[in-house]
């Protein structure tokens, strides 16, 4: 049983992080963490408190062949770490969910007098909910929120593009609260296959110039023409 009393809960979280719980108790806490926010937060706080102790373990090089074994296991799992940009699990979920939405929108867009090579995508949440419509426009991009939702307080949403073959995403700026945004031509050239993502970042945007927060929405630009 996971206790409800905050003090007992904190004590359990501390012992879980410390590692002194037996196998059954540890498994129970691990199973509860995704569904129990107070337990999750208490465990995270204890991880942060005790993390420096990991510095007491003396570094030691692992066996040279370990990487090959890891790579083989990843390949067997169908997510090889090497090679060209591989579709992430999120992207696969996106592809499955977005096809129907995209087909409908593409049919709509093609009826308009379109400029050449018009591109679009729908950014989905991790639960396949359509959240943003992204369209190329005059060499730039235009964003419209399909399903406005509040941003976590004290954070901002930042837009990124990852051109095919590139290794680092390019920041396209912060998304205003209005839910409408345009990216001027020149910052990035929209092209088929370009990954567009929105991440949650600290106020003012990522301090590192690369995404640092979780991916909220993701999609891939495709030509807006019937297939």
């Amino acid at each position: 049983m996971i206790p409800a009393d905050p003090e007992a809960l904190d004590s359990l979280a501390a012992e879980h992080v410390l590692g002194t719980l037996d196998a059954r108790e540890a498994a129970e806490v691990a199973r509860a963490i995704p569904f129990n926010a107070p337990l999750r937060e208490a465990a995270a706080a204890w991880e942060a408190r005790l993390a420096p102790l990991a510095g007491l373990s003396l570094p030691e090089a692992p066996p040279a062949e370990l990487w090959d074994r890891i790579e083989a296991s990843l390949a067997a799992r169908g997510s090889a770490p090497a090679g060209p940009l591989r579709p992430s699990r999120l992207w696969k979920a996106w592809a499955a969910g977005a096809t129907a939405v995209a087909a409908g929108l593409a049919a709509f867009l093609i009826l308009r007098p379109a400029e050449p090579a018009r591109m679009m995508t729908v950014l989905l949440t991790s639960r396949d909910q359509p959240a943003w419509l992204v369209e190329s426009e005059g060499g730039g991009l235009r964003l419209a929120s399909l399903n406005p939702r509040a941003v976590e307080p004290g954070r901002v949403q930042q837009l990124w593009a990852l051109p095919p073959g590139a290794t680092a995403p390019i920041s396209l700026g912060l998304i205003p609260a209005s839910g409408q945004a345009s990216v001027a031509p020149g910052l990035v050239r929209p092209q088929p296959g370009m990954l567009i993502e929105i991440t949650l970042e600290p106020p003012g945007g990522s301090p590192t110039g690369r995404p640092t927060g979780p991916i909220l929405f993701i999609g891939r630009l495709a030509p807006a023409r019937p297939s």
């Binding site: 692992p62 890891i70 770490p81 992430s88 992207w91 290794t167």
Partner: peptide, 27 residues
């Protein structure tokens, strides 16, 4: 982040940079 975005080689670079420290923790 690179691993999350599916960047080629990101996991290998992460492993190369951190495997000795992490193996020490497991040892």
């Amino acid at each position: 982040r690179g691993v999350a975005a599916g960047e080629a080689g990101a996991l290998r670079r992460l492993y190369d940079a951190h495997s000795s420290r992490l193996f020490g923790i497991a040892m």
